[in-house]
């Protein structure tokens, strides 16, 4: 099966080391180091403008860091051919959209592009990867629906399936649940956390992050404010410090996952 390809020992996977990036003259990322645990789901938290999306784009190789380096198994991304990178690292954005009348199968098949050669038809491996990606995301029955007939939740699942068809070992997700209702948010996150790929996912909802992530990295103004296991990172102090919001953090669940209850008024200084 294609799920859970555990990384070979000694391989470091995808790492960002002391990366910085400016946008429009402002420093968006300032010396951030991120080394997601292989096979785990790392949640990337932080207020708007804290640099989450920029960090993901650096990790995806879409954007180059101005200082620092992003490496894949120790090799700088800059020196890797794009196709090779696309076979290792897949990306799901906030809400990809298209005017093109693609079917679900067409869209998922795009994930095979890094493996395809010009002028040649898809191979059996291509078709099998597409079939498997559709099955894992529960989309097999929708394979022939066209894009514009899909709901927002279905579209995000198609994007996830497309990413899985790339057969990546690293999966980057930028607020994939942003435009979804609660049910579809839970569906998608359960799906992602069950993949057992090395995932880095930017999220806004602290409780969803607490429910599904293994680790958290919190950014504030382009720097890492906290990083570690969920229960250690997600504290009342952190919510107050980073978001400026008073909150009560409890641990009602037997597995000790924290729950954040916002107390309404903004936190005082400090």
């Amino acid at each position: 099966m294609t799920d859970a390809p555990s990384p070979a020992p000694g391989r470091t996977g995808l790492r960002a080391e002391r990366v910085s990036r400016t946008a429009g003259g402002a420093l968006v990322l300032d010396g951030v180091t991120l080394a997601p645990r292989p096979g785990a789901l790392t949640g990337l938290l932080g207020p708007n403008g804290s640099g989450k999306s920029t960090l993901l784009r650096l990790l995806a190789g879409v954007l180059a860091p101005e200082t620092g380096v992003v490496t894949l198994d120790g090799d700088p991304l800059r020196g890797l051919p794009r196709r090779e990178l696309a076979r290792r690292v897949a990306v799901v954005g906030q809400h990809a959209d298209t005017q093109v009348g693609l079917t679900v199968a067409d869209a998922v098949r795009l994930g095979r592009l890094p493996y395809r050669r010009a002028w040649s038809p898809p191979t059996a491996a291509d078709e099998e990867a597409v079939r498997s990606a559709l099955a894992r995301t529960g989309l097999s029955g929708l394979a022939h629906r066209t894009w514009h007939t899909l709901s927002g939740g279905e579209r995000q699942r198609v994007q996830l399936a497309r990413a899985l068809a790339q057969e990546p070992r690293e999966l980057l997700l930028d607020e994939p649940t942003n435009h979804l209702d609660v049910r579809h948010q839970l569906d998608l996150l359960a799906l992602v956390s069950g993949l057992r790929l090395t995932c880095v996912m930017a999220l806004h909802d602290l409780n969803l992050a607490a429910l599904y992530c293994d680790h958290l990295v919190v950014l504030r103004e382009g720097r890492v404010a906290a990083a570690g296991p969920v229960a250690e990172v997600l504290t009342e102090r952190l919510v107050a410090d980073v978001y400026g919001v008073r909150a009560a953090v409890t641990h009602p669940a037997p597995d000790g996952r924290p729950h954040v209850r916002y107390l309404g008024a903004p936190a005082g200084r400090g």
Binding site: A60, R83, A86, V89, V91, T98, L110, L113
Partner: peptide
């Protein structure tokens, strides 16, 4: 095939290699 990849925009095309 490359043209197909532009359906979801240039950034998605880039992440597809």
């Amino acid at each position: 095939r490359t043209l197909d990849a532009f359906a979801f925009g240039e950034e998605t095309a880039a992440t597809l290699g």
